[in-house]
Simulated assay, not measured.
Amino acid sequence: MEVKEYSGVLVFAEQNKNAIHKVAYELLGKGRELSEKLQCRLMAAVLGPDKTDVNELIYRGADTVYHVCDEKIFSVPDEIAYAGNLVKLIGELKPEICLFGATSFGRSVAPRVAAMLETGLTADCTDLKIDDDMKLVQIRPAFSENILAHIKSDNYPQMATVRYKEFEEASRDQSRTGEIIKLEAVLSSSNTVEVLEELSIEDINIADAHVVVSAGVAVKSAEDLKMINELADLLGGQVGASRALVETGLISKAHQVGYSGSRVKPTVYIACGISGAPQHLAGMKESDVIIAINNDPSAPIFNVADYSIVGDMYKIIPELIRAIKN
C-alpha cells in the first residue's frame, strides 16, 4: 500500500442535538500541527442534520468541512449508521490520519470504522507526533501509567482516539474562510437504535468545571458527602470522586475523576481523602493548583500537590468551610 495514495488529516466532529462536542476543537488544534508537518489539508467531518452550524470548525482551523446531512439517520446514536457513512467518506477522501474524540460515542464508532477499513486504531492517546519517516506516532499510557507506549501503524488511514481535555482547543479566528461541502447520507439498513426516552440522572460536567472538590474512599457515608458538596458549592465548583468511592455506590460514575472516568484541568483541584493512585493522578495532575488533604503523610497525592495538608479531613474541611463563610 503506497502512502502517496493517502493525504490529509481528518477530524471527526461529534455532534449531539446540533451542538458540536468541544473535543473536536482540541483535535483541530493538534490536527493543524500534524497537517503543517505533513504539508497537507486539515479536514473535519460532521454527521448530522442540515441545520447543524459547522462554521465554527472553519473558525477553529479546518480547511474543508464535510457535512453529511440527514435529519433522521443521525437523530439517534446509531454507531453502525455513523460508521457506514464515515467509511464511505474516508474511502473517497483517503486521509492518511483520522482522529476521533474518546467520548463514549467516539469510543464506540472509531473501532467499527477501523475494522471496516481493515486498519489499526490506538485508543486514548495522550499525544500525537509525526516522526522522521512522516508516520504518525500515537502515544498513550500503558501498564497503569508507568510507561508511555509509542505506536505506529503500517496501514492507512492511521487512526487514533484522543481523550477530552488532553490538548488545548484550537484558537478561534472568525475571519478564517474555508470550504463547506454538504453530502447526502447513506441510508442505514440497521435500524437497531430507537430512543424511547431520555433520562438525566445528574446534570453535571466536571470536565469543564473551574473548581473540583474530589472525595476519596476515606468518606464513610453519603451523609459525610454533604460537607464535600458544601465546600464545592461555596467555591462555585463541582464534586469529583475517586474510582474507589464510586465503587462503594456512594456517588455516581458521572463524578469519577481519573483514567477510567473524566479528565479534568480546573483552576483549583481539592483532593479530600484521596491517596493518589496512578489512574486518578492521570485524570487531574494538570490542574493549575492542587490542594491535597490526607492523614497519610506518604500518600502519593502529595507528590503532585501544590499545597499539602496532613490531617483528618473531617476536622479540616469544616474549618475550611467556616473560613470561607467568614
Rank of each mutant, 00 (worst) to 15 (best):
236 G>L: 11
135 K>E: 08
215 A>S: 04
95 P>C: 07
220 K>F: 14
221 S>E: 00
248 T>E: 15
164 Y>C: 12
207 A>K: 08
282 A>H: 07
16 N>E: 15
315 K>P: 00
161 T>L: 08
197 E>S: 09
210 H>Q: 10
279 Q>T: 08
266 P>T: 06
178 G>A: 15
106 G>Y: 07
61 G>I: 15
38 L>K: 10
233 D>H: 05
98 C>E: 01
203 D>K: 14
213 V>W: 00
19 A>N: 12
212 V>E: 07
206 I>V: 13
107 R>D: 14
185 A>Y: 00
96 E>K: 10
187 L>R: 15
214 S>W: 09
66 Y>T: 02
240 G>Q: 01
227 M>K: 03
118 E>Y: 05
5 E>M: 05
234 L>Q: 00
189 S>Y: 13
286 E>Q: 09
177 T>C: 15
21 H>K: 07
216 G>P: 02
120 G>F: 12
124 D>G: 07
45 A>N: 12
243 R>Q: 08
250 L>K: 13
14 E>P: 03
3 V>S: 11
30 K>R: 13
103 T>K: 10
319 E>L: 11
218 A>D: 11
210 H>Y: 11
307 Y>T: 02
18 N>S: 14
247 E>Q: 06
274 I>V: 08
197 E>Q: 02
276 G>P: 06
7 S>D: 03
295 N>D: 04
305 A>P: 14
259 Y>H: 13
99 L>C: 09
234 L>W: 05
244 A>W: 02
25 Y>G: 01
125 C>E: 02
111 P>Y: 08
103 T>G: 06
67 H>G: 07
27 L>E: 05
61 G>D: 09
33 E>A: 12
103 T>P: 04
169 E>F: 12
311 G>N: 03
248 T>I: 01
159 M>P: 00
195 V>I: 15
326 N>W: 02
151 I>V: 10
68 V>Y: 04
234 L>I: 06
115 A>T: 08
237 G>N: 13
56 E>Y: 03
270 I>K: 01
121 L>I: 01
42 L>F: 11
92 E>F: 09
292 A>R: 04
16 N>A: 14
320 L>D: 01
202 E>Q: 11
81 A>D: 10
293 I>M: 05
274 I>K: 03
307 Y>N: 01
2 E>Q: 07
257 V>K: 04
308 S>H: 02
54 V>T: 10
